[in-house]
């Protein structure tokens, strides 16, 4: 599905080149909402919860962290972790040597945030991930979609059983490829629910999305000696859906006349007073594979 959208984007671009310009518009006012960024993974640097306030769309000042909350994570294995503010940026973390924070697959995690008299709660389960078998490097020449050069495909098999969802992250020399186009999520071995591709190797559009891309969606080749690391994070189906909407919103501006109506990301955070809240809580198992680009 994603491919077709790139295709349209290319065509629209072709048809309407030079017809985009910046304009001034007035937006409706809206209250600042509590935003919970709680994507915990089995990597100490991901043992963080960030709390911030949403801001007016055109406000490009640094996001305002909410650093006065009490944040706790309780597991079904009976552990209680107090997440402590690291500074005044709204980031809360546990000590890096708290190894037991990595509970086994199947553990339920409950997040509780107490802020300004309101309690925000969320619950999630840690799901398993498949191992990555290999990263294939290949030299591509005369590909209409890509410059000549080395490109990578990662190989892994979806875990048996319907409804496994993953976030596949690629790092180039340790830097996360964070362009929205590079946001790679999978539902079983494919890119959406309903397809019966259970337990198979990740299908072509998924396994290829670990190459960096430029602003025209064209993949950028890897250079020899660069380091590629691919991580698969297990995510809940709801988290998959959250990331899918997030990605669609960020890419919608490229869709030209085929844009979809603006949508808000869903959330699994519940506030005690029913007030609106933004964000998501997920706890991931992680598998990874690192390789160095070799001459082909």
């Amino acid at each position: 599905m994603r491919y077709s959208i790139y295709l349209f984007a290319c065509l629209t671009l072709l048809l309407s080149q030079g017809c985009e310009d910046r304009i001034e518009v007035t937006l409706d006012e809206a209250p600042a909402l509590v935003t919970v960024d709680a994507w915990i993974a089995e990597i100490p640097s991901d043992w963080e919860v960030k709390l911030s306030a949403s801001q007016a769309y055109f406000d490009s000042t640094r996001v305002q962290g909410l650093d006065e909350a009490v944040v706790t994570i309780t597991t079904s294995t009976g552990n209680v972790y107090d997440m402590m503010p690291t500074d005044d940026s709204g980031t809360y973390s546990v000590e890096e040597d708290t190894n037991s924070f990595n509970e086994p697959v199947g553990t339920t995690y409950d997040l509780e945030i107490l802020l300004n008299g309101i309690t925000y709660t969320a619950s999630t389960t840690k799901f398993p991930v498949p191992e990555i078998d290999s990263i294939q490097q290949e030299l591509r020449i005369d590909d209409p979609f890509a410059d000549d050069g080395i490109y990578c495909n990662f190989f892994a098999n979806d875990l048996p059983g319907l409804g496994n969802t993953y976030w596949i992250k690629t790092f180039k020399n340790g830097e996360y490829l964070d362009d929205p186009v590079e946001l790679n999520i999978a539902f079983d071995a494919a890119f959406g629910p309903g397809a019966e591709v259970d337990g198979l190797v990740f299908i072509q559009p998924v396994q290829e999305l670990n190459n960096p891309v430029d602003e025209n969606f064209a993949p950028i080749p890897w250079e020899v000696d660069e380091e590629i690391r691919v991580e698969i994070h297990s995510i809940s189906n709801e988290a998959f859906f959250f990331l899918e909407v997030l990605r669609d919103e960020l890419l919608n501006s490229n869709n030209g006349i085929f844009a979809t109506p603006a949508a808000n990301t869903p959330t699994n955070i519940i506030s005690s007073d029913g007030s609106a809240v933004i964000g998501f809580f997920n706890v991931a198992s992680v598998s990874s594979f690192t390789d160095t680009i070799r001459p082909q």
Binding site: A30, S52, Q55, Y57, E249, L250, A262, N264, G279
Partner: peptide, 22 residues
């Protein structure tokens, strides 16, 4: 058409949001 009112930041992504749900 639908305009956003706000933006928020999650996992390094700055995302548009319509806090009024309109």
């Amino acid at each position: 058409t639908t305009f956003p009112t706000s933006r928020y930041e999650i996992q390094g992504y700055v995302v548009p949001y319509n806090a009024n749900g309109t």
